[in-house]
Amino acid sequence: MALLRALALVLIAGATALAQSAGYGVGRTPTAAEIRAWDIAIGPGGEELPPGKGTVREGAQVYRAKGCAGCHGPNGTSGKAPTLKANRGKDAETWSRGRILPVRAPHATIVWDYINRGMPLNREGTLTPDEVYALTAYLLFINEVIAEDDVMDEKTLPKVKMPIGDDYAKLPDWKPRTPRLKGYFHQPR
C-alpha cells in the first residue's frame, strides 16, 4: 500500500516528492493502548471521555477530600487560586459573570479536561475518572448550569447546555501571508 502511494506520488509530483512523501522510515508505531493512555485531549463531542460517573454530592465530598478548598476557598470563592463560582447567577448575562471556567466554557468537556490534566496542583493525574466527573458536576451545579440531581458521565457531560451557547466569536479561517483582519490598518494597495 505504502509502495503504491509512493509510486502514485512520483507520477503526480515528480521525483522531488519522493524524498518528502515516501517516508524516511523514522519513528515507531505506537500501540493502540499507548495512544489511548496518552490521549487526554477531550474534544467538544466528548469521544475521548473514559467511562465513569459522578454526582454533585460526590463532587462536594471530593472537593473537600482532595484539598481543592485549600486553594480555591471552601465554596469555590475567596481562595488564592482562581475563583470557581461566579458572583452573579444564571439570570445574569454570561459574559458579565466573569472568566470562570464552568460558566464561560462553551463545552462542559473543557471543565472535565482541565481538572483531569491540571488538578490538583502537584498531584496532577491522580484523580480517578469518577472523581473528575463528580468535581465537574459540583462546579457546574454551584454555577447553576446543571441541577442538583443531574449525574455526569461520558454520555451526559458532552450534552450539557452551557450558558454561553454560541455567543462567542469563531476564529478566522487562517491562511498564510494574509492580514489578520481585513481593513484593519493596511497600506493602500
Binding site: A41, G43, P44, R104, A105, P106, I110, K170
Partner: peptide
C-alpha cells in the same frame, strides 16, 4: 475541528 482546549477557552 477546533478542539477548544483549556488554552483555547
Amino acid at each position: 475541528r477546533y478542539y477548544m482546549n483549556y488554552n483555547d477557552y
